[in-house]
Design a protein around this nucleic acid. Sequence first.
DNA 1: GTGTTAATCAACCAATTGGTTGAACGAACG
DNA 2: CGTTCGTTCAACCAATTGGTTGATTAACAC
Lengths: 123, 123
Amino acid sequence: MAADPLTRVFAALSDPIRRDMVARLATADATVTELAEPYDVTVQAVSKHLKVLADAGLVSRSRQAQRRPVHLEPEVFDLMTTWIERHRRTAEQRYRRLDDVLASMPDDIGASPPTEQRTGAGT
Amino acid sequence: MAADPLTRVFAALSDPIRRDMVARLATADATVTELAEPYDVTVQAVSKHLKVLADAGLVSRSRQAQRRPVHLEPEVFDLMTTWIERHRRTAEQRYRRLDDVLASMPDDIGASPPTEQRTGAGT
DNA sequence: GTGTTAATCAACCAATTGGTTGAACGAACG
DNA sequence: CGTTCGTTCAACCAATTGGTTGATTAACAC
């Protein structure tokens, strides 16, 4: 459990149930039992998921009598988007530089790159 | 390994080493041995990490002689940012609606909310 | 051919994860 | 008071994960 914040947030959202809970909490606060209702797991399991989300800072809990409504804290999203955008920008800049190089080259150079067929990452 | 794409991408980035690899690949393609160099783990471990990234569609491999340079595929980032922004927007709209309600209320209503102190999610 | 280099495959191990059941806790209600 | 409701804690289990070592494949160099 002693991981850096970014690791915790990405890990928290790497589970479909937890992602669905976050999606639902975006529209309204909810209690543990309310959250558990749609899923085919016990309330205890959902409580555990909720702990993961809370440890990631994605949700907070308040107290209303014996209920403990869960509230989404969407600021934590910025942690991810900042990281992602940073590296996306870096990668894109690299492509732009490559385009410049290619554009400034005489037509015949770099025409047939030595055996390069990309595999994997089937988007 | 049979998980939906979003799960795979979030899971892939939930590891510090894998995140660091992605960050480095954003600046330049690299081989497995090059990628492994900074970390205190075996090349085999890095090869496994790379497989996770490839299964998530985040990287692709080409072939140059016996080397297999790894290349970042940043389009996959969109999968995450789309999801995140969608729910962030939903949550923010909710706050705006709440602000409207509060603004349209007579001054004394809703002044002292019944015992509500939020805990957890220490941003 | 033999050898060398880059990378993966295979088997194994410890720790973590997502789930369970059962017990316990705290706040309300009779 | 005792009970019920909402939630969490504790122990356990199977599957996954991140790591290891050792063997194997693939493409070059001699």
